[in-house]
Each structure stands twice: as structure tokens, then as C-alpha cells.
Amino acid sequence: MTSERIAKRFAACAEQRRPALVTFITAGDPDLATGQAILDGLPAAGADLIELGMPFSDPMADGVAIQLGGQRALADGHTLKTTLGMVKNFRKNDADTPIVLMGYYNPLYSYGAEKFLSDAKEAGVDGLIIVDLPFEEDEELCIPALKAGLNFIRLTTPTTHDARLKLVLQNTSGFVYYVSMTGVTGAAISNYKAVGEAVTRIKAQTDLPVAVGFGIKTAEDAALIGRDADGVVVGTALVNAVATSLVEGKASATTIGAVHDLVASLAEGVRRARA
């Protein structure tokens, strides 16, 4: 049975006539206890869906901020198993907020794909976004994930032409993640109009919700992108909030609050997107 939490949450947001706020944080950044507290407080701060980044030594599609977030977690001894443990803890108090794990394939492959899928499902994970698994490699993890009852959320980008988009959407479930630009996470969106057009183009080909990510940093960005998109994803800005709160590389008294305050302001942004 594929997790329904994602579909339910997008439907609930649509009913409120607003886009969903999707928040990305790196698991275990800057340390496990702080990371867990940040994660646990995201729904109350206003996050509708959570993307939990699985730290990887070589995050080829990420900009410096998220690279450094992953390095902080890894330096603290974080592993894939710890990430799953964080989800398990989160689920003790929250049965409704969808959690999507985002990252790169090798740690999962090393863990063992089948074992990972069953452990992730058991921990309460709803879906996966694996950056370096295009549909050409669907047999690796996408098909087994769908069979195991996990959503497999696919990235589409400005370079995904129409013929390719059909194939990209074929095994996609949960939602479609539109990457707003050709670039790494944390770069700036240069053409908001083009993003809106791309969302319209994708929505013409699928009934799934379309969330837009890469380059959304402020409540204003979220409001602007959220006019067309069913969800807006914010990642780098939140990881930067962690980074700027650190004192001598360690979590400070302001770290958790810094992330939750930014989420609250973004939540306010998505609520005026279509007002």
C-alpha cells in the first residue's frame, strides 16, 4: 500500500487555496539532537511536507550551503541508519506530515536497496527523491520502491523536453518536483515567468501536484512561485539558517529557533500566494 500522506496533504492545501510549503533540512545537521529538534518542530512552524536530506560525501547537484550541511552531519558521525532513526522518532508524535528522503544513490545502494526500502517504510517514510537516478535507471530503485509502497518523486528540469517529460512522469508518484533552473541548489531564479509556464506545461501532462524548488529563499519568493505551483520547496535558505546560527561550528541557543522562524515566515508567504 503506497503511502497516502503526500496526496492527502496536497489535497488539504489545495482546499485552502494555497500551495504547500515543502521544507528541506539536512538530517543530523549540525548534530543529531539539534537536527531531531529542528525536524520535530517543522510542522508546528508551518511546514506542510518535509524533505529530509540524506548526507552524502559527494553531492554533485548541490551548491555550497547544502554541501556544508551534509559535511557537518557526517563529521558528527551521521549515517543513513541515523536518518531513518530520526524519522522513526518524528513519527512518535506526528502521524500526518509527509516525509520524503532526498539524496544520492550510493549510500542506499551500499545499505542494500531492498533492505533500505523496507526499513524506510517501517520508519514512516513516504517517498524518495534520488537525484542521480533518472528514469533510465528505474529498475535500480524506482520500481522496487513503488512495489514497497513508497512514492518515487522525480525531478524535472528546464532541459526536460516534452517527449522526455512523458517518460519522466511515467513512474513518478506523490508529486512532481520541478527544478526552477539549470544549476545547483541555492542559485537564484532569473525568470519567474518561465517557471510559471513550465509548471503549466507539466500540469497539462499529469494530475500529480507540481512543487517547485531551487532558488526559493524568502516569503516573497514563495508567494510568487506559489501562484502557479502546488508546492514550493525551500532548502538552502533553511540550511543557511542553521549555518549562520552556529558558534564555533556548534549549535547555539538560537539554531533551532532560526530555522523555525524562517519556516514560519515562509508559511505566511505561501498563504498570501493566491490571496
Binding site: 554533485m60 533518472p134 533510465e136 522525480r154 525531478l155 524535472t156 528546464p158 523536453h161
Partner: peptide, 20 residues
């Protein structure tokens, strides 16, 4: 055709690069 030598090789890259 998938770029595999036995189980090795393949095309494990981000979607942005696949069309390229």
C-alpha cells in the same frame, strides 16, 4: 545500449544532464 558493461557503467546523473 544502456551503457552497461555487465552490471557496471550506466547513466546515474541528475535529470538536468540526461538530455545533454
Amino acid at each position: 545500449e544502456e551503457g552497461r558493461f555487465g552490471i557496471f557503467g550506466g547513466r546515474f546523473v541528475a535529470e538536468t544532464l540526461m538530455p545533454l
